[in-house]
Every structure is written in C-alpha cells, then in structure tokens.
Design a protein around this nucleic acid. Structure first.
Lengths: 351, 351
DNA sequence: CGTGATGTGGGTAACGTTTTCCGCAATGTT
DNA sequence: AACATTGCGGAAAACGTTACCCACATCACG
C-alpha cells in the first residue's frame, strides 16, 4: 500500500481557497502576502503535510540544495570542515548534499557536472585538484566557494589556511627543540599552476623558506611522495635510509605522519625517542592518546563556517567582488616532538 | 562573462533536425530510435555539449540520483560501505549523493525528507536509528535499502553483518587464548524494537550467548556506554575500576576500542600486556601499525556492493519481495590480543 | 474629486524533460 | 489483394513550481 499521490501546491491552494501564487509566496516568504493570508496558507500546508518538489522548484527558481565536493572520505579533517558548513547553514532552508570523489580530474569533473545538472544553488569544492580553468567554468555557472586552494579568482571565493606560515611554525618549533636535520615529506607536484595554489606546495615552500631563515639551508631534505598513509610510509623509508638520518620529520599532513609512524614501528624506532615527528591538520588521529601527534590546527571548523557564509553571500549577490579568507594556523604541541638529545649517531640500516 | 544559457533538449533536436522525443529516446536508450537516428543525435549532443537537466527529468521521470544517509562522517567503516556502493554503481548513470546526519531522529527525518523532496530514485540508509515506522514510510515512497539494521520488512531490503555470530567469534578467540574474565562495552539501548534490530544490541547478545556457551556465564560483565571514542574511554574506566579487573575487553566497535586504548594509556597500562583488547569493524584505525587492533572484518565493501545491487533491483521492480542479505564476519587477528599469562593480580586502582 | 502611490491577490506563461499517443511506411501473412 | 504486424518518428500533454505581469481596492494628497 503505497502513498497515493504527493500533495502539490495546487492541493494546498484549493484547500486554503487561494491561488497557487499565494501559496508560493508564503512558502518563500516573498513580498505580497498579508498576515492573514500567511496564517491561512500555513495552516493548509500543515494540515496537508505539503512539501514542495525540489525538481519543480529547480526548473524555475532555487533548489535549496548546496553541494559539497570532498576529495575523499577517510580524512577526518574534511569532516571538521563539513561540521562548520552544516552549522552555518543550520538556520537556513538549505540542505547540504555531499559527493566524494576519486581524487582525479575526471572524477571531479563528473561531480561538479552532476551538481550543476541538479541545479544546485551553490557548491563548495574542498581541496580540488582540477585545473584552474575547470574551476572557473564551474564558478561561472553556479556560485562557488573553493576551500583549501590558494590563488585569487574573479569567479569564486576562497577559504584557505596560511599553509606557508603553518609550515614555518612547525620548523620554528622543531628548531626551538634543537633540531637541525629536519626533513619534510611532501605531496609531489609538478604542474606549475598547482605549485602556486595547492596547500601541499605551499607547505613545502614554507618549510624551505623557514629552514633558510634559520640558516639551515644545507639541511633541507624533502621526500617527495603523496599525501596518503602509504606516501608517508614510503617517504619515511627513504629518509631513514639516508647516510645521516634526520632527527625530525615534518610530515605535510597527519595522514602522512601515520604512515611515518608505521615505518618507524617497522624499523624498531619510535617518536620522539629516535625521531621527532610533526604532522599537519590536527585530525582525530593526532589527538588520539596513544599517538598524540604534534601537529598544526588549521581550524577546519572555521574554514567550513567561512565557506558557507561566503557562499550564502554570493548566492545573494552573484556580482559582488570575490573574497579570499585566509585563516591562521596554530601549533598543537603533543608528544611526538621532543628536545633533541645529542647522542651517538647509529649507522643507517643498509638498503 | 557568465555562460549565456544552458543547452536544452530543444537545441539538440533543432541542431540534429529531429524531434525532442527522438533526442529523449536516444538519451535514455529507449525503444524506437533507429541506429542512424542514434548516431545523428549523439553527434549533436556531443557537438553542443548537451547535458540533461535533472530538475526537468525529475518532474516526469527519474533523476538518476541515489541518496546515501550516513550517521556520521568520522567512522571510516562507512567509507568502506560507500566505496562498495560507488563501485557497484560505477557503470550506471546513477550519481551518489550523501548526507551526513546528526545521529538523532529529527536529523534523520530531515535528511530522508530532503531526499524524497529531491525525487531521488532510491536511497540507502546506513545504520539508521529512526523508528521502524519512519523507515517503512520512507520505503513506501522511494526504493530503499537499509544497511546495518536487522529485522525483516515488507517494504525495504536489508544488508547486515551477522553481528550475533561476530561477537561469538571474538569471544571464542579470547577464550582460546585462555581468557575467562572477558568484559564487553556496549552501546546502551532500551527501545525494545531497536534491541532486536540494532547491531550493537545483537553484538551484546552474541557476547552473552557465547560466554554462556563456554560456561563463563558468571564472568559476563558489560559496561553500557555509547559507540564513540568517549564511550570507550568511559567504559574502560568503569571496567578498570572493578574489584577484579577483566583480562580482556571486547569493545563493540573499533572506535570504542580507541577510547579503551586511551584509558589504558592514561592508566599506565597497555594491550595486550595488561589487557587483551578486541574491536569490531576492521577500520583503518585497526589496521594502523602502531595500534594493530584485533577486530572483526564485517566486509563494509561487500555490504556496499550488495546494498547498491539490491537497490538497483528494487528500482527496476518495486514489487519484488524484499531480500535480507546477511554477510558473515571474519576475525582479523592482530597484536592487541594475546595468550593470557597467569600472573599475580594487581590490586585495582582506587575509584 | 481626480490622481498617484501602495498593498494585496491571481492568471498565466514559462522552465526542460518524459510519456502517451498517433500516423506512416515497410514488411510479412493469409 | 487485403490485412495484420512491426519499426520508427513526431505532436502534444503533462509534471509542479515560480516569475512576470495585471487588476483591484484603499489611501494620501493636492
């Protein structure tokens, strides 16, 4: 026994003895409905349990839907951002729908197109890797906020963390603990545009810059892999095989630090006894007691709040100039970084 | 300079010199279009870069959208399920959109209604906590598959793990290692329907049953908290404060085991040296080297694949009888469980 | 008393698809 | 030769909402 037919605006109008126009106005809090009309119509809506069809709405006006594209689902940092978005959108009529992506350009294109096809009122793209041109195209079609990607665009607003500064903070912290051989694991990047826009590239830059600033230019040592657990594992293996091993590793992301811990465990080493380790993102992993990773809090929640706010502003006025919000990262000191204790350098493991 | 106007089916029809009906038929691979027609229309579609509007489609036919409701985003187990869903839907025209929920009934209702309002072709509800009546109502409106919740319904298909058996496997494993004082941390549940349907309740039941079967009924010891990291932490604190401490803890979920590890670390204890610890779900956490948690693999990926398959079947034929897929869990032995070494019982720490 | 302004309500044409039908031609069947 | 069948293409009516107008009443103002 399936519910017969959905209640439409026509049913409500008839039941309230008014026009569909009137019902529509009330639903949207639009101008031109007297208080008595409001009451009458709302009563009918309540009584019939009317819910407007997003499909029909989308054909004329808005869908009250906001799309969020995530690069993946396993990085809890994105959950923080999403919480912020949801919180900011809490009071509004907007519903957030997410799509997780395969972390490649065709996948991102599929998702952005799917969101456009579905007439979404706005989209938030989190750490997209697509070419800038594609982002612009999307942004010219639908109000767009890009999170976690630097670079000014006339078409979309951005929310980022100051990754360059964040990397500097980590280096400062490690130098303060007496470390000099501080290595970095980065997400490899060759595309020149992305080198300027992607957080990973800026973190690597910030690392280099801070090392220079401390007069440690000669100790700059970067393992180039990917921002994944496996990437951290492989990067750590590379670094551990150096003739002289680094005393500290700055992993570009917490998830990378997890891989580093994996490799350390496997090599019979531990942090911070043998090597100090810092991550980036302050995810749940990092906070987890037995791990207790020193990391950078880039305020995912705040990023989400800002992204949602910017998006609402842009939906309200598509022609306003774009804004770039840059949030300041902060250091979260935990137990994987420690004062460097001078001690006899053990020979590195062969091969 | 915004893109002028979206290409519609009318543009394509005109450009190809055919009717919109013909274009529609080709788009949907419907009957009544000759091979030449197909070629001609596809060429026009390609040339103009036409993409159908989901809103307009939704008004008459399908939206090619499938909604997935998640209880939360931080539990990586759900990501496994989602991977399975995405994989199974890979070849089709369906797009998956997710909504994460606040883990409460009003939140779930909001999301299911939002999905219905958006004319989604089908929904997959993962571990919903809503009353059964609400699930039935949703399922009568839109094809529905419920994942991770037991109980037969004439309206929706289900995919579950055999939680009762899974709990038994854990107990068997621990008993085999010589443990007798095996405690359990459960997600508290009082609602009588949910006691029969929720995985957490079945795991607790399975635990009790297996303990009895091993003649360990007297050692049954359950800490009733929640399936969260904090729940695990609090549960472990309760158990550690017992006059005689358990030698093994079966946490109802990996995330709970994380909290237990937290509490152990804080108490200066470790697994498996002081207490053996097993989880449930085989999430990324569990596999992570330095943690290496013994747990139950409930094949999240397989659950996702099955859920998607059932959903497609139901979309194809809404009146087919409902199916209940129950997957068999398997033990993943890692390093947090170990043979019980008899040793002097240390006095429990004071409250 | 005429003339705008203002507030309120409704009629109606979109919006872009799919679906249901109908017609026509070609082909097979008695 | 008459008739059913099949294949293919198109015309037109939905689908449920919103945007754009216009109509009417009321009121203020000179």
């Amino acid at each position: 026994m399936r519910p017969s037919r959905r209640i439409t605006i026509v049913d409500v109008a008839r039941h309230a003895g008014v026009s569909t126009t009137a019902v529509s106005k009330v639903m949207r809090n639009a101008y031109g409905a007297s208080p008595e009309m409001q009451v009458k119509v709302r009563a009918a809506i309540e009584e019939l349990g009317y819910r407007p069809s997003a499909a029909a709405r989308g054909l004329r006006g808005q869908t009250y839907t906001i799309g969020v594209m995530l690069p993946e689902m396993r990085n809890p940092f994105f959950a923080d951002i999403l919480d912020g978005v949801t919180e900011q959108l809490g009071g509004t009529d907007y519903q957030v729908l997410m799509a997780a992506c395969c972390n490649d350009e065709p996948g991102e294109a599929r998702i952005t197109e799917a969101m456009i096809d579905r007439s979404m009122d706005g989209v938030i793209l989190i750490a997209p890797i697509s070419e800038r041109r594609h982002l612009q195209k999307v942004a010219r079609t639908v109000p767009t906020v890009v999170v976690g990607r630097h670079g000014h665009s006339p078409d979309y607003d951005t929310v980022t963390d100051d990754d360059f500064a964040g990397a500097g903070i980590v280096v400062d912290h490690l130098v303060g603990l007496g470390h000099r051989r501080i290595a970095h694991i980065e997400h490899a990047e060759r595309n020149p545009v992305r080198l300027k826009e992607m957080p990973n590239a800026l973190r690597a830059d910030g690392y280099r810059h801070a090392m220079q600033a401390h007069g440690l230019g000669d100790f700059i040592d970067i393992a180039s892999t990917t921002y994944t657990q496996r990437g951290g594992y492989l990067g750590a293996q590379q670094l551990l095989a150096r003739p002289t091993r680094p005393t500290a590793i700055f992993a570009g992301a917490d998830i990378v630090a997890m891989g580093v811990l994996d490799a350390l465990t496997e090599a019979g080493l531990s942090a911070p006894a043998d090597i100090s380790l810092a991550g980036y993102d302050d995810t749940m992993f990092a906070a987890f007691g037995p791990i207790s990773l020193t990391t950078i809090d880039q305020a995912g929640h705040q990023m989400g709040v800002n992204a949602a706010r910017l998006l609402l502003d842009r939906i309200a006025d598509r022609d306003r100039p774009t804004a770039q919000v840059k949030l300041s990262p902060t250091l979260v000191t935990r137990r994987t970084t420690a004062e460097l204790v001078p001690r006899p350098q053990r020979p590195a493991a062969a091969g």
